[in-house]
Simulated scan of single mutants.
Amino acid sequence: MQITVIVATLGRRAEADDLVEDLANQTRLPDRTIFAVTTEDDAPDRDSRIDNETLICTTKGLCAQRNAGLELAIGSSDIIVFFDDDFVPHPTYLARLEAAFDKSPDVVGMTGLVVADGVCGPGLTRVQAVSAISAHAEAYPTGYPRETDVNGLYGCNMAMRTSALGEKRFDERLPLYGWLEDLDLTNQLLGEGRLIKLDRLIGAHRGVKAGRVSGIRLGYSQIANARYLLAKGTTTRSQLYGHLVKYPMVNAVRSFRPEPFVDRRGRLRGNLIGLFDLALGKSKPEKILEL
């Protein structure tokens, strides 16, 4: 199998350099590694062990940068792996992934077990992420064998067969952070085969806050992107209705005593603008570029 790793990164040079090191330490090296950036300043140093490439993209945004990497790699790859720049994979990640795809030809996409996720808090240091991975690996030396069928893959670590991807791409109408872009694309793969969460693939998601969009923009995306994908029909209605109700409620309650690492009031303001536009029939994901 020809495995290509694609990483879209913006404003996180240190994290990108760390990921290069993690990929170079894989027991099964990637056949190709592409860092999709919008400026050379964001590009990690080249490592001769994986010969990582830098792709300069003309359009900024997670979907656009990932698509640019896809266009470069899809013709010569069997498996495309997407990692967030702040994801820390265990050294066996790619080896176990290849074995799992080889064993199950009906599986077209998979995601791993995130043993620690800094997105849910202030973020993890690299030491914390590595410690969490090491503790889990020590408890399960050959990996926890659970395999679960899912309706979508977690965007920080997800892999897809190029034969199933075909002409499917990330929707560039979901700009910047691309909220829900992972569910949008990977749900479409269900027509080609199974999607699974494989707990033998382990890593940690640091949830670094640098490089993320503003609170008001994210809050608007939480509403507008969910509404857009409901109309598009690429994800389950229950998932998206949950987004439309859940986030305004959570942001409203927590805005009274916001966490120091989350702009709750900005997110709530974005939610309210999104709901107002929704009521007027003017909701569109691209509006965050104007906010």
Rank of each mutant, 00 (worst) to 15 (best):
T142L: 12
G123Y: 04
N151F: 13
T125R: 14
G152I: 01
Y140T: 00
D117H: 07
A116D: 11
M158L: 09
E167H: 14
A129L: 08
Q128R: 02
G123M: 06
A135L: 10
Q128N: 01
Y144M: 01
A135R: 12
G166W: 08
L153I: 05
L124P: 02
A139S: 07
M160W: 04
T162S: 05
L124C: 07
S163H: 06
G166F: 10
R161Q: 03
V150A: 01
Q128F: 00
N157A: 13
A129T: 05
T148C: 01
E167R: 15
V119A: 09
L153P: 08
A137C: 10
P141H: 05
G143L: 02
R126C: 04
D117Q: 05
P145I: 00
R146D: 15
E147T: 12
M110H: 07
V127F: 13
F170Q: 14
V130S: 11
T111D: 09
L165Y: 05
E147S: 09
L153W: 07
Y140C: 00
A132C: 10
L113V: 02
S131Q: 15
S134L: 13
N151T: 15
M110L: 14
T111N: 08
V127A: 14
V114N: 09
F170V: 14
M158N: 03
I133F: 13
L165A: 07
V127Q: 15
V130I: 13
P141E: 04
K168N: 15
D117K: 03
Y144F: 02
E167M: 14
G166I: 09
S134Y: 08
P141I: 02
G155P: 03
A135Y: 08
P122R: 14
A132D: 04
L113E: 07
E167D: 15
R126L: 12
D149L: 09
A164D: 05
G155M: 00
G118Y: 08
I133M: 13
S131Y: 10
A129Y: 07
V119R: 10
Y140G: 00
G121P: 12
C156L: 08
A129N: 09
D117T: 02
R161N: 01
R169V: 15
K168Y: 15
G109F: 04
L124K: 05
A139Q: 07
S131L: 13
G155Q: 01
G118W: 07
S134F: 12
A139H: 06
N157H: 11
C120N: 15
Y144W: 00
G118E: 08
A159G: 08
G118P: 08
A139L: 06
V150E: 00
P122T: 12
G109C: 05
S134C: 06
A132W: 04
C120I: 13
R146A: 14
V114K: 10
S134P: 09
G152N: 08
G155W: 00
N157Q: 11
G143A: 05
T125N: 11
C156G: 10
S134I: 09
T111F: 05
